[in-house]
């Protein structure tokens, strides 16, 4: 058995196809991108090596980079603190919905299936200050004072964007927790009932702790997805007004392509990957310790 499982030839053939694709499509291009990060290349023609200049400028002088980073972190934190509790709550409720369970489960996942182009258009019309649903609803329930230019007001815009991304990504978080709940053995529910636990105690003290491993997976996936998020902003505000909704992915794209600062854009993407890396590693360590082995 052992001999068979450590046969080098077999391992090579198992790992080779995947590695080949990843090396040629991701690792090698990223290597090129790191290389360009040290140059002042504009995308065409000659370029000079500028050493760490790009990186220094991004970290010390680039306000848009810090705005984008803060926005990305805000989105991440909001997703974990708001979207995930709701996802857990709904996945618990849905297990009590009897024969409607399956239908509801499917429906809850639908926003995640539909192309982001469509959902961005939908939300842009909901937020529209002139004919948008949101302002109409506020007015009809006598809360006209709360009416806003939801995407045009730089203080609110990022929150409007956060709502959209949370709604769009809700399906995945929900599905993970739902699957986790379904994995909890029924005996546990029975045992807790016999012990006289009320439903709240049952869930808070027995079931949710059992979801911890799933939570770790879901949180890490969410963190990566949030930090990489760009499509919603790209389609709904273009990072505006005045960069107030800028996110790292969008900023990197704009710099490298629209502003024709390819070298600088690549330096952003290198820093971006480093930031994501640090956050996930720290989070992974922290969650592992907190949750313990299960």
């Amino acid at each position: 058995m052992n001999q068979l499982m450590s046969d080098k030839r077999t391992i090579f053939f198992l790992v080779a196809p995947g590695s080949l694709i990843l090396i040629s499509m991701i690792i090698f291009p990223i290597g090129m991108s790191i290389y360009y990060g040290f140059t002042d290349w504009g995308g065409i023609g000659d370029y000079n090596f500028v050493g760490l200049e790009n990186f220094k400028n991004i970290i010390f002088n680039d306000e848009i980079f810090s705005t984008s980073l803060i926005n990305a972190l805000l989105l991440t934190v909001a997703t974990i603190l708001i979207q995930h509790p709701i996802a857990i709550f709904l996945s618990i409720l849905i297990t009590h919905c009897g024969r409607w369970e399956k239908v509801l489960r499917t429906i809850l996942f639908i926003p995640a299936i539909i192309s982001i182009v469509v959902t961005a258009k939908l939300w842009a019309s909901i937020y529209n200050p002139q004919y948008g649903l949101l302002n109409n609803v506020l007015e009809s329930i006598g809360l006209s004072a709360l009416k806003q230019d939801w995407l045009g007001n730089p203080d609110i815009a990022i929150w409007s964007i956060i709502v959209v991304t949370m709604w769009q990504g809700f399906g995945y978080a929900f599905l993970l927790y739902y699957a986790g709940l379904k994995g909890v053995p029924d005996e546990l529910y029975e045992a807790a009932k016999i012990d006289g636990a009320n439903p709240f105690q049952l869930y808070l003290q027995v079931v949710i702790p059992l979801l911890a491993p799933m939570m770790r997976v879901a949180v890490i996936i969410a963190v990566i997805a949030c930090l990489k998020q760009m499509e919603v902003v790209y389609l709904m505000t273009g990072g505006g007004p005045g960069n107030s909704t800028q996110l790292l992915g969008n900023y990197l794209y704009q710099t490298a392509f629209s502003s024709a600062q390819y070298g600088y854009g690549n330096a952003i993407s290198v820093l971006f990957v480093i930031v994501v890396l640090i956050i996930t590693v720290v989070l992974n360590k922290f969650l592992k310790r907190d949750v313990g082995e299960y």
């Binding site: 291009p29 990223i30 930090l227 990197l252």
Partner: peptide, 16 residues
């Protein structure tokens, strides 16, 4: 690989 933004690879991949 999960953390790599697609846009960082657009131009290198085009070149390749």
């Amino acid at each position: 690989g999960m953390m790599i933004p697609i846009h960082a690879t657009l131009l290198p991949n085009f070149i390749i």
